[in-house]
Amino acid sequence: MPNSFQIVVCSSLVPDPLQTLEPVAGPALKNEMMLPAVLDPWAACSLYEAAALAAAHPGSKVYLVAMAPKAKLQQVMMTVAQKVPFELVALDGPLGGFTDAQSTAAALAEAIAAIPALDRSKLLLFGGWESASRGAGVTLQTAGELLGITEQFQGVDQLTVRDDGQLEVLERVEGGRHQVSLCQGAPAVFGWATGNLAEPRNSPQMGMANMRGITPALMKAKPVKLDANGLSYVSAAVPKQTRETRLVRDMPAEEIAREIVAWMAE
């Protein structure tokens, strides 16, 4: 079929953003296994973009390659499966953002390469350009390299397929600007920023349809042990929150605005 794609979305799980995140020795996040988890928000955006792209190009298919402890993956799939149609490739691996990016990328690339009947000439590798846990910033690129894909784009907000099959990519660049690039076509890697799509509503009907494939995928999830590759962390901390309260009466709005701008410029 013309312009049909095989879109592989890579994602990990992160704690629900509202949860208290407290680094502990390891490093790891305190009680991370027990905290409610979600699909990494950047990767989730890429999944929704992948589904929209697949829907617009009949014959396309979306795979979600996700690495996390199997039990956590199952919990998160109860929501993710309701969003868009996809086929899950599950890797039973560690949680958290403190793993070695090279090892993680290698595990992902191996799992992608093992997808039966995957046509690499139609492969678009999607994922988040960032992560809500600890974004190493290189995992997706490395996975692409390991799969031999050299056309890579990061901070993607829009992907348009032209009639001639070329891919027009809107990437974020410095200074709040976007850069438009053209790519001949698949295979290519796209590290998504937020994209432009809203989070789809939950549809239990779609979820039940997805679960027909997800359940066996979870059952045969391959255990993955990631090599630290000599990586060690000196310390880990969440950004410090500061609260400075001042009581000021009758301050003009212009003055308040000026002060806020000055504070932001600091």
Binding site: M78, T79, A81, P204, G207
Partner: peptide
């Protein structure tokens, strides 16, 4: 799974 999904959906 059907009930778990219903829970997530209703919660959202």
């Amino acid at each position: 799974f059907d009930l778990q999904m219903l829970v997530q959906s209703a919660r959202a």
